[in-house]
């Protein structure tokens, strides 16, 4: 079994239900996110387009975070999920330096690294991840990549415009996007001006090292 995720970006309407469900399900503290939805506006009025991009851990087959973790706090589960052991983590933040997708954070309450686990605790009892359940347009498609009859496998087979983020890094992500674009998936393809924009302030957090 190799669990994977697919987001059909043409279905995503940026409602953030997935992000909220994830926060509630996993008790994610303030200022930390396992799953976030980024808005990118492209073009000039009247010729404009808005991209919504849900971003979460890619559960790479060749995960740099797993390789660099000095104590195996980040480890593979038999179903392919890259899981975190909070009790094992020493908080060196190497995984944050290694992850090319910015998917890992240091939980300010536990002081340990944390990230999306595809809701491993729910999958264990036969439930879908919280974000999949919450999505009103079924933009999140989750399943076993090894099962040719799974929805995700069929979706991948029937679409030619499947993309992953940063394929050149050979991390082999198990998180796919359909109907994506470079603007949506490459963080350097869009400007990221700091300051107040739509509803909130786009900014960077201050130094989050140990001290």
């Amino acid at each position: 079994m190799r669990l994977g995720f697919l987001v059909d970006l043409s279905r995503c309407m940026g409602c953030m239900a997935c992000a909220v469900a994830c926060k509630a399900e996993n008790n994610v503290p303030l200022h930390s996110w396992r799953l976030r939805v980024k808005y990118i506006d492209q073009g000039e009025f009247p010729d404009v387009k808005r991209h919504f991009v849900p971003l979460r851990c890619n559960h790479c087959e060749n995960a740099p975070c797993e390789r660099i973790c000095p104590v195996s706090a980040l480890h593979y589960l038999p179903n392919g999920i890259v899981n975190v052991d909070h009790e094992r983590c020493i908080g060196c933040a190497s995984c944050m330096m290694a992850c090319p997708y910015n998917a890992i954070y240091i939980d300010p309450i536990t002081n340990s690294a944390d990230k999306c686990t595809y809701c491993a605790h729910r999958i264990e009892v036969g439930l879908m991840p919280a974000c999949v359940v919450a999505c009103p347009t079924h933009a999140n498609i989750f399943g076993d990549l090894d099962d040719p009859e799974s929805e995700i496998s069929k979706y991948l087979k029937s679409h030619r415009d499947v993309m992953v983020r940063k394929p050149e890094l050979n991390t082999h992500p198990k998180h796919f996007y359909v109907r994506g674009s470079t603007v949506a998936l490459d963080p350097l393809a869009s400007e990221r001006p700091e300051g107040f924009t739509l509803f909130t302030e786009v900014k960077f957090l201050e130094h989050i090292g140990g001290h």
Binding site: H31, K38, I40, A93, S190, V202, G209, H211
Partner: peptide, 21 residues
């Protein structure tokens, strides 16, 4: 269409390893 910019996002961590490293 020209230009693209992030108009909504969460605050991202910036410097993870600082002067101690």
């Amino acid at each position: 269409m020209v230009g693209a910019e992030v108009t909504f996002d969460v605050a991202l961590p910036k410097v993870v390893w600082g002067w101690l490293v």
